[in-house]
Design a protein around this nucleic acid. Sequence first.
DNA 1: TGTACATCAGTGAACGCGCGTTCACTGATGTAC
DNA 2: TGTACATCAGTGAACGCGCGTTCACTGATGTAC
Lengths: 204, 204
Amino acid sequence: MSKASYHHGDLSQQARQQALTVLREQGDSAISLRALARQIGVSAPALYRHFADRESLLAELAIHGFQTLRQRLLQVTQTPPRQALIGIGLAYVSFAQDDPNLYRLMFGGRVLPRGAHPRLDDAGQAAFQVLEDTVERARRCGYLRPLPLSLMTATAWSLVHGLSQLTIDGHLPGTDAEPRLAEGITSLLLEGAISPTNNNEDTP
Amino acid sequence: MSKASYHHGDLSQQARQQALTVLREQGDSAISLRALARQIGVSAPALYRHFADRESLLAELAIHGFQTLRQRLLQVTQTPPRQALIGIGLAYVSFAQDDPNLYRLMFGGRVLPRGAHPRLDDAGQAAFQVLEDTVERARRCGYLRPLPLSLMTATAWSLVHGLSQLTIDGHLPGTDAEPRLAEGITSLLLEGAISPTNNNEDTP
DNA sequence: TGTACATCAGTGAACGCGCGTTCACTGATGTAC
DNA sequence: TGTACATCAGTGAACGCGCGTTCACTGATGTAC
């Protein structure tokens, strides 16, 4: 607690915080334990008291990201089916847009491969579960067509994940430039793309 | 041409090839000019005759990737609207699954930021254009609902891109495990997720 | 309450590594006359 | 056809850098009696 104490007292938490700041500003590849220690004012080996290695620290950031995402999704799903489905889509995309580098770390694939960090896998699963629960609820009450749950969930997730990635990478306009895009896309999925006058078979 | 010549004669091409191999096997972060030169049997500075810097080489790989993707998309779009739309989705996803690390490089965002390599931006745009043209054709002939073209294209792209990313990162089963997932998802978008008996308003 | 001791959380120095890039250079190739 | 010369495409050495991680250590803290 005392400022100049030999024991830092809060190093673990402060390292996480500093890493998150660097992540946000410069991306995960800019996170180095040596630089982190320097910025905090501590020797580099000190960090190894708290993190097994660099990747474990990254994993913790990602875990925290999934927990935050889960909370934000939960907040918008206590509404009727259509609102819940659109709301969860919007919340998901805005999470990604608010914190693009964190989102990339969470879903980057290369940096934190599946299976290497069980707690990370669990956290991702828990966030995904909110989406699945919401879809299932809408389907049970007859709002959605009676298709396999896994198919509907995979579709919804693909859509919001794709939109998130494309907007944060600048391939599609973000919410600043096109505030209604995310909602339009979600609605389109719900209502279908095919013209109602022509929804049976191909013209050969 | 002679094998032991001082001038290599084909260094540029061989470097690209070797870089692509490393990319496929280990991802873009494993590509280093020094290692590449070593593997080819040439001094590292020699590569600077052919590439301005490391990032330019990566950009060339990504450009080639977009050109290949474009060709593959073009091959499946000369069919009736519904087949073309589903076909382009499947082709897109299978491209990503065939070459995940190349796909990640193309859409990674961090490594090759938009705007830094005009030829790369053009190549990406050209691939995207195939998708847009296909959607527009389907819409013009009345197969799709009369919604804004940009909305429909963004939706289609988000869906296939999201599915690609999620499968290559192991969050959703790939085509091996679930061969019909991509097709099911694409169909779902076309036909809509809402139950036809309940497609008007929310139950409050 | 005091003290011996175990444990915890730091330190500085070092290992070993590989990288991107620049420099001055040299051998090979192509071209003009 | 021969030759002088410009240009091209390589070379080896070096610069400067930062990284992850381990080691033997020391100062601070907590605990049992």
